[in-house]
């Protein structure tokens, strides 16, 4: 690939004192964390805790009220930052362009940046679709795909970028358990293959403990614990315990 910084190593991510409010509602209250190059870092927490907003800040889609996000020591808000690093995000809804078919969606990055010839792009698209188990879906429109298929197309689209940092927003929501496992395997394989730094936002505990090198627990816009999966399991912090111990206890009389 002839895009920016054409190496496959992951990048270091540092979040420093991030604060964000929407109107009077504080969403992030001084979040700080550090993700090592090539690490799979899971941010876990209940709905509305600020996970997705944090992810949007990391990729530069939101501007912080206070604090900064540094990739390899460089602020994501700095001019020309996106030209230097290859980053990709898998949105919760897939966020496929509805006017384009699957092949056009997957190859969009290469087409728009004119990085490959049309034949090359077709080959790469077919290769990435094969990885996510969607061979032969090139001509389908997003409206013809199920939620899970859309998510897999979104992952294929992210793979095309050959990212140094990949962000997943609830990658297993709306997926059946089998497909959730496939996606989790793909997250792990991708790390092994291209040593990408991955940040996964999820409230899926199985996914988190399955793929994470480290897990951060977030509640009410604050990081309440960061540690390896075993450390999180052993953590006695009430917020973490409450989240991990939550299960259905229904009286069916």
């Amino acid at each position: 690939m002839n895009g920016p910084a054409s190496n496959h190593s992951g990048v270091r991510v540092q979040v420093r004192g991030l604060r964000k409010s929407f109107g009077d509602q504080p969403v992030l209250r001084g979040v700080s964390l550090e993700v090592e190059p090539g690490e799979t870092f899971v941010i876990m927490g209940p709905s509305g805790s600020g996970k997705s907003v944090l992810l949007k800040h990391i990729i530069g889609l939101e501007t912080p009220d206070e604090g900064d996000i540094l990739i390899e020591g460089e602020s994501v808000q700095s001019r020309g930052f996106m030209d230097k690093y290859r980053m990709a995000m898998v949105f919760q809804s897939g966020a496929l362009l509805n006017s384009l078919n699957v092949a056009e969606n997957v190859g969009l990055y290469l087409t728009e940046h004119r990085l490959k010839s049309p034949e090359e792009i077709r080959r790469i698209v077919a290769e990435k679709l094969e990885i996510v188990g969607l061979t032969g879906s090139e001509d389908k429109m997003p409206s013809e795909l199920s939620g899970g298929m859309k998510k897999r197309v979104a992952i294929a689209r992210a793979l095309v970028v050959e990212p140094q940092l990949i962000l997943y927003d609830e990658p297993t929501s709306e997926l059946d358990p089998l497909m959730a496992v496939t996606i989790a395997e793909e997250i792990v394989n991708l790390k092994a293959r291209i040593h990408v730094t991955s940040i996964v936002v999820s409230h899926d505990r199985d996914l988190a403990f399955g793929v994470a090198d480290r897990i951060a627990m977030i509640a009410d816009g604050e990081i309440i614990f960061v540690g390896k999966p075993a450390e999180v399991r052993a953590c006695t912090e009430p917020g973490v315990r409450k989240f991990l111990a939550a299960e259905f206890k229904l009286n069916k009389t």
């Binding site: 949007k56 990729i59 530069g60 889609l61 996106m82 030209d83 980053m87 990709a88 995000m89 949105f91 966020a95 496929l96 362009l97 509805n98 969009l108 990055y109 728009e112 940046h113 979104a154 689209r157 970028v161």
Partner: peptide, 9 residues
Amino acid sequence: EIDALRTMN
């Protein structure tokens, strides 16, 4: 979709 475009630079 516009956010997705931005993430692809």
